[in-house]
Design a protein around this nucleic acid. Sequence first.
DNA 1: TTTACTTCGTGTTGTAATAACACTAACTAA
DNA 2: TTAGTTAGTGTTATTACAACACGAAGTAAA
Lengths: 229, 229
Amino acid sequence: MNDLQKYPRPSVTIDCVVFGYDGEEVSLLLINRKEQPFKNEWTLPGGFLFLEETPEESAKRILKDKTGLANLFLEQLYTFGDIQRDPRGRVISIAYYTLVNPRLFNLVLGEAATDLKWFAITKIPKTGFDHKEIINVALARLKAKVTYQPIGFELLEKEFTLTEMQLLYEAILQRTIDKRNFRKRILESNVIKATGKKRTGEKNRAPELFAFDEPQYKKLLKEGYQFKV
Amino acid sequence: MNDLQKYPRPSVTIDCVVFGYDGEEVSLLLINRKEQPFKNEWTLPGGFLFLEETPEESAKRILKDKTGLANLFLEQLYTFGDIQRDPRGRVISIAYYTLVNPRLFNLVLGEAATDLKWFAITKIPKTGFDHKEIINVALARLKAKVTYQPIGFELLEKEFTLTEMQLLYEAILQRTIDKRNFRKRILESNVIKATGKKRTGEKNRAPELFAFDEPQYKKLLKEGYQFKV
DNA sequence: TTTACTTCGTGTTGTAATAACACTAACTAA
DNA sequence: TTAGTTAGTGTTATTACAACACGAAGTAAA
């Protein structure tokens, strides 16, 4: 018998905070549980860690199975381990967060959910477990992160206008940003490139379309680049 | 039978990165293991999480038992969960880090260690498990943190000179800092207060002694204050 | 008691980054 | 052709940051 059997083991779960953006509001994906505990309450998509997968792999599997979301960027948020956080017993949860564009995915109804729904971050309902706390930590991290690193392209279409991008940043940061300054900085950073196209058909001047320059972005990151809004 | 029994459970451990500062170098506390695996190799102080304690409580207990350190500020670093990170089986480790002044503590020899030793961060030996990776993550976090939040008072005596404080920051950041600018910023921040005393007896001008103004610091933190070196 | 030695303590100025600000251009619809 | 709407663009003031040198205070030794 080795150490591993000698000590009691807690259950380990993964919880995922999925942020979305539909062009107007930043929102959050919640599942209405159809099992006890917290049956019929809203919770973060989550599940048990399997022994043959890393925490990140586990988060990906769980999101795929429960929501249909795949190919996501995931970042570890924090590990929650309060003794009473799960009424079933001692459960440690490793939380991850991600950003997606809801229009690019068709949500599935997972086997353990009767419902899967986006909620605006300004209107988050009562949640089960300690998920409210997890959400708050995730929101704080998202805000902090977006001001010095251009995450958030996951939330836009492949081609987007600078106004759309600015609205996204304003939705995340919950403040207004000066248009000229925003454009200046984002263009100087070289993480986006003009496509040469314009979006016509709307009842105003046709805006230019831009795209994320991923190779350039990765190159800059390696050099220790930091983008500032 | 509920969910918790239905799923296999990994072992959960806590590992602690303890940074120290002796007035010259930033150093790191390692334990020479006297058990398999990695017997006679250097490792971070760590141990198994008990079911009746939170991860942070567990980190405190482990540090107390294995090193004698107590009353520490602890911050969760990251959770490491690679499948092969522990040869004994599947082990998830929640890592914490802390800062201490080695001269204020007498290290004990823990029951599972034949040796307990401080290593300069520029001279860290080969370590067991994935502890090298954990140390690197902790170092990066420490550097990032110290430039915008005045942590690090744990590493100084209660009363200290501004030169001592500057040397600490230089040791953490591994770069020199302009003396006048450093003093200007730290004094303007109001997180330290003059004691009115001087340290005499050395062969040069007696420097003023300062102390950390903890109530003021906590008040500023609540207001969203950020200190910049 | 004078002098030499060592570290302490202090302000200013140039430079770079950030924030504030308003009008014309392009497109659509009536 | 005109009115309505959003797109797109530069300059200036303010603030933050970085660079820089010398007299003051204490100790030790002549």
